[in-house]
Every structure is written in C-alpha cells, then in structure tokens.
Design a protein around this nucleic acid. Structure first.
Lengths: 390, 390
DNA sequence: GGAACTTTGTTTGATTATGGAATAAGGTTC
DNA sequence: GAACCTTATTCCATAATCAAACAAAGTTCC
C-alpha cells in the first residue's frame, strides 16, 4: 500500500475527478449522462469535459445511438494516455505486464525467478523485464510509464509498507519493496499482497454491482483478499484476509510453520497436498501434476484434493456467515481442480444457512491467469484517479 | 436500515457538512482549527459557521486557551437542537432512551415487554413510552423529536428494511418496523439489528482511532456487529455479522433451531447454557442467575460458562484472522461473567498468530447497558448529518 | 414530407462559493 | 513595552456553478 514518488505525476482536481469517475467506471459516456449522474448542470459538465479533453485524458469517440432525439457524442477515457507496469511476484515464477489507463492488459511476460534470490536481484530483474516490455511495443515506447504496482506473496504492512514475516519469501522480511523498486526505477511504486490484488482484479474486471466479495487464493499457500463496499479492505495493519493459520474443524494434527497444528495452510495448501502425496509414497513434482492425476481419476490425489476443498470450505463457511459477501471467488492453482472446487462448494452449502448462501455467487475467476496483474493495475489507477494521486 | 420519512427534516448542504463533521467528531472546536482541518480559507469557514449559528446548530461556548496568541472562540454543536428517540427491543425487556444531538443519552426507561405480543402492540407501547419520556422533562417537551431509531433482536434486510426470519421474534417475520412505527409516530424511523447498533454505540462513544472493530453480543442469543473503516458494515443484504449458526470446533452434536447440529448459538448462547444447566439437574431461571452461581464458584455453572467462552473464542479466532480488527468487544449479558470472558480471551490468544493479536484490543463495553441505545442514536445522527439526511 | 416532440449540446449572464491579502483583536514571551 | 504569535474579520477578486435560452440533430406520426 505504501508508495514513494520519485517522479510524481500531476494530480487531478476534485472537480475533474467527479467527471472522470463515472467515465472510468463506465457509468456514463456522454455529457448528458454525466450531468444526470453527477447532478451538475450541463454547462458545468461541458467545461469540465473540455478541460479533460485538453489535458489529453478524455476523447470523443464518435456518435452514440439516438434515444429519440439528438444522438450523444460518446466520450471515453484515453486508454493510451499512459501505462502502468504491473508485477505479480511468485515463489519461483513472476508475471510482469503492462496495463493501459482503461485497466486492460496490453502485454505481459512470465519469467522464472526464484524469490529467494533476495530483493535486490529479484527487483532488478523485474525492472529490466518491465523495460523490455515497454521497449518491445513501438506504441508503448512513446508512452509514459506512470509507475509500477507490485503484488507480493506475503503480508504487507499498511503502516510502513514493509513486507512482514513472509513465510515463503526468505530474505524479504522488513523489506520496503516500494522504496527499493522506486529507487531502481525512478517511478512511483505501489505494493500490496498478491491475494488482495487478485481480489481487486477480479472485482474490477467483473460485476461491480456486487460490492462485497471474498477472493480465496488457493495456491501453494492459502491467501485471501477482501472487497468491502466496492473497495479493497486490508485493515489498519494491512494483514486482513490472512487465513493461513485458521484452525480447521476435525483436523489431523499436522504441524505448521507457525508452531501450532491443524492450520489451514498446513493442511489444505498446495504445498501441504504435495507433501501428503509424498507421504503416501507418490512422488509428484508440484500441485499442477497432482491436479492432472486427479483428472485421470487417481484415487489418492482425488481424495486429498477433495479433502482440501472440504477444509477450505469449512473455514470459508464461518467467513461467509460473518462477512456475508455477495460473491466468493475461488482462485489460485487449486481452483483449476474441479474436485477441490466441488469440495469447497458442497461444504459451504452444507454449513451455511440458506439466508447466507441464497444470494451468494460462488465462482472461479473470470481470468485466472490475469487477475493478479489486473488487480495491480486497478490498485494503481484507482489511486492515480483519486484525490490522493500517486 | 430502511427509513420512512412522514415528517422529513431539513437536509444539511454539503458545504455545511464539511464544517459540521469535524465539530461533531470533536476534531476541531474553533474556526482556525476548522480551516486547518478542512483546507478551506478562514473567510469561507467563517461564512459557513455563521450560517450554522444562524440555523441554530452551532453555538459559541466561550473562549479556549491561548496557544501563544489570541485565544480561540470555542465552537460546539448545539446538543439541544433536537432529540432522537432510541429503542433497544429485547425479547422480554425493552429500553427506550432520548439522545441529544451530541449523541449523549439524556433520559431512559426500561420496561417489561414481551416481544411475542406482536408488532402492533409492542410498537404502540414503545411509542407511548417514548412520548412519556419526552413529556417528562420540561426541557425536552419544548424540543423537537427528530425521529426514532430502533434496534431489533433479529436480522433486518437492507433491501426492504423488513425483519427477516427472526428466530426469537415470533410474529415479526417480514414486518417493516420502520414503516409501522413511522405510521404510528409520524416521525422518521430507522431500524437495524441490535448487535449492529451496539457495535456502533461502543465505537462512537469510544476510541474512533480504531476504525475496524468487531462487537460480539453474547446474550440469550449470539450476535455480532462489524465496524469497518469507521462505519457500520452490514453487507448488501444487511445480514453481515450473523455468527449464530457457525459450526464450532470439536462440538457436541447439540441440535439447533436451524436444523443442523453444533451451531455456536445452540452451544454457547445464554439460552443454551440455561438449558444445559437444567439438563444437569440444576434449575436456574435465567443466565443472570447462572453467572451469579459461577461467581460463587459453582462448578457446573463455571465449567459451562468457561466452555461457552472457549467455543465463542474459537469462532472469533477465525474472524480475527480474517478481518484483522483493531478492537474486539465482548458485550451482552455473558460479558458480565469473568469466566466467560477469560475463556474467549485465552482461546483467541492461543488460536491466533501473534501478528493478528499483537495490536488487537480485547475489551468489554465501556457502557454495557447503554451501548445499544447510544448506537441507535449514533445511527440516526450519522444519517441526519450526512448528505442523505433522514 | 412536414409539424411536433425529444434528446443532446452550447452559449450567455447572473449567482454563489471560495481564496487571498490586509487588518484587527487578543494573547504570550522576554 | 517591543516583538511576535494565534485567532478572527473584512473586503475584494476570482473561480465554479447554475439557470435559462437557444441551437443542433434526431424520431414519431399523421
């Protein structure tokens, strides 16, 4: 959440933001609609729009269809007014992408990168790769890279922006990623937890009429992001959504890295499942292989994935009752396993009251591979198009 | 959450609200402070304040202390600019109070009232009692009752404001309390769940620097209210916070009214505890008697209360990990039992990571008997002093 | 084909909100 | 008592906004 702004960018005035917000959200696409939505007079809207056109942030994109009178001249955000470099740092694989001002992914690159190499080497490599992406496209080369937005596989303090006790990121404890990458790149940098950004990405590219959502990232570890009232919720410290060490009902006493036994992460995460397979005498290289085995009806893999789904669903049942979200999204690698998702679903419906699940949508991500990067972009753009700025 | 406004009240302009908000929150008490806080120029602040003084909502209350120059003329909200009738509907006891514009309780009355008598009789009686309160105080009799704010011991739909499937309120299912009471009284009425309002009351009369709080009402039933980013969170449907039917770890298979077994409400609520006592051959009339027994070191009562605390703490552990609140308040009758509270506390600290509980305050309500009424008042005033109005 | 109506967009002058600077009022400090 | 500080007020310039009239570009229906 923290940011450093080595090359701070112009901030939008509150007045312009009133007009920009509906355009960005797709709630209005003409001056008349803007006037209706904002309550401003037509003349005021015209003045604001003219200024934004002059600034190069809004463009007229032809005529709309008439609704019984003069047809509207359609307005849109200039998506190529700039780009944001988005990074989804993983344990051994990192995705880097460029997102335009409309929030859409315009290019991406996936590289193998061991996070244990440490912040300096990893972030240096990330910046190199990002510059390559910018240079690769003739169009982008002329565009202004407004900043970077990074998701990391561990908790990020909201107080000082540092990575806190990341169990899967040796050498990163207490590191101020925003500052480090800001110094390397010279552009503003935002940092957040990866599951939080995936939640935001899935929300922003999906149905915004469901303002309360929970996104579970069931990957090698288990994380979770919360959207409350249409905004990312991270709590005062930034650690909200961390369900790794929630105790599981009727669980086997498997020891966890946190020192206790029976944590969700120690039982139902991708890592835990691979370990369990090996304990059963079945060597699998990774979760993906295990999911493939389950698809081929391997009994052990199927059972373990189903059980993991059940355990995850049990924890989510409490959360659904408590938070009562409109939508629950099951993401991460494990969400590619039908057995796992079925386990989550059936447990949720069994353990929640109909009142809580009646209007609840349970889904997998619309764009499983992109939601992390899209969320990083959304986080940056939401802030840039706010009074705070970047 | 729903309201009907048979006698709608003047709405504050957005400009006046900018000045009113800091005054109400106690963040500023002079023109200079207002100017600093809002970023407005001194002349603008003066104009706004003058208007509010003219409207009778702000008063000058003498001089403040100098900080090295001319001393400020202290400003304050006129607390006697009006009153709000607040109601905390219980199963067999109802509290009614009057709250002034500063949010403080100025008078109250507790009456025995069986909620099973049905909406018409109960609400009629409530309105009678409220009018008595207003008439009782010479000062209030001249004041304007701006509206009513009611807490009910069951879920309230945010969509249509109706009471939904309230297990403890026979005859109230689907009732639009706001409309009914609005028709009876002729003033605007707000309705919300009682635990939600208690959370709000405890938050508003306490430390507002802790914006994320969870309030557990452990009474004859178990409810819960959520404050997120300093505002009451009820979810899209209004049912957020309902943890009655969350499954308890390692629970006895006690059947619940919802049709399942092992729900928190069936195991750890006041009703459940009284039933358990009776099953052990010990007749107790109510939870209060049981708590008294535990204070006298009765082994059965003590064990049951401790176990109830442990079970409640187990459920809250998941919630604390997920929501990561700044503060957790244990309220309701059961919070008067030290054994119960100790059970919750010890379980929470045992089952949560230090990261989640390190900065977490666990407390009982500052004003256990008042927080429901105070919350009702806050809900009404917050809305009245917002652009929405009542 | 044309009159009547609709919706969208623009122009104009009046109104209102706000900011800035100068000034006054009432203090403290040394 | 001189210098300085904080708070409040006044007055005028400026910026933002609105209301209303008007223009533009459609549709509808006889």
């Amino acid at each position: 959440m923290a940011s450093r702004s080595p090359a701070s960018y112009e901030r939008f005035s509150a007045q312009n933001l009133v007009v920009l917000a509906p355009l960005r959200a797709g709630l209005a696409d003409s001056k008349a609609e803007l006037a209706k939505l904002t309550g401003l007079s037509p003349s005021t809207v015209a003045a604001r729009v003219d200024e934004l056109i002059g600034l190069g942030h809004v463009v007229e994109v032809g005529d709309g269809v008439s609704r019984g009178g003069r047809r509207p001249r359609r307005l849109a955000l200039r998506r190529d007014a700039g780009i944001v470099g988005c990074v989804d740092l993983g344990i051994d694989r990192t995705s880097i992408g460029l997102v335009d001002f409309s929030g859409e992914l315009v290019s991406r690159s996936d590289i193998h990168l061991d996070i244990a190499e440490g912040p300096d080497r990893v972030l240096g490599r990330v910046w190199d790769e990002c510059q390559k992406l910018v240079a690769a496209d003739e169009r982008h080369a002329r565009l202004f890279l407004r900043g970077l937005s990074v998701g990391v596989p561990g908790p990020v303090s909201r107080v000082d922006g540092r990575v806190i006790a990341p169990s899967r990121m040796p050498g990163w404890n207490g590191v101020d990623v925003a500052r480090l990458l800001g110094d390397i790149s010279g552009v503003p940098v935002l940092v957040n937890n990866d599951a939080n950004l995936m939640a935001l990405g899935e929300f922003a590219s999906g149905d915004r009429s469901q303002p309360d959502q929970v996104f579970v990232k069931a990957g090698s570890g288990i994380g979770c992001g919360i959207i409350a009232r249409g905004e990312l919720f991270v709590g005062s410290r930034g650690a909200a959504g961390d369900i790794s060490h929630v105790a599981v009902l009727d669980a086997a006493p498997v020891p966890c890295s946190c020192g206790r036994v029976g944590c969700l992460d120690a039982l139902a995460s991708g890592n835990a499942l691979v370990r369990e397979m090996q304990n059963s005498g079945r060597e699998v290289p990774n979760v993906e292989a295990m999911i493939a085995l389950a698809r081929d009806a391997d009994p052990v893999a199927t059972r373990l994935l189903r059980e993991a789904g059940t355990m995850t669903g049990g924890v989510l049942a409490t959360i659904v009752n408590f938070f009562n979200p409109d939508r629950l999204v099951i993401g991460g690698v494990l969400s590619q396993s039908e057995v796992f998702v079925a386990g989550v679903r059936s447990t949720l419906y069994a353990e929640c009251l109909p009142m809580a699940t009646g209007d609840l949508t349970i889904a997998t991500p619309a764009r499983p591979d992109d939601c992390g990067l899209l969320g990083a972009g959304t986080a940056f753009l939401d802030r840039m198009f706010s009074e705070q700025g970047v």
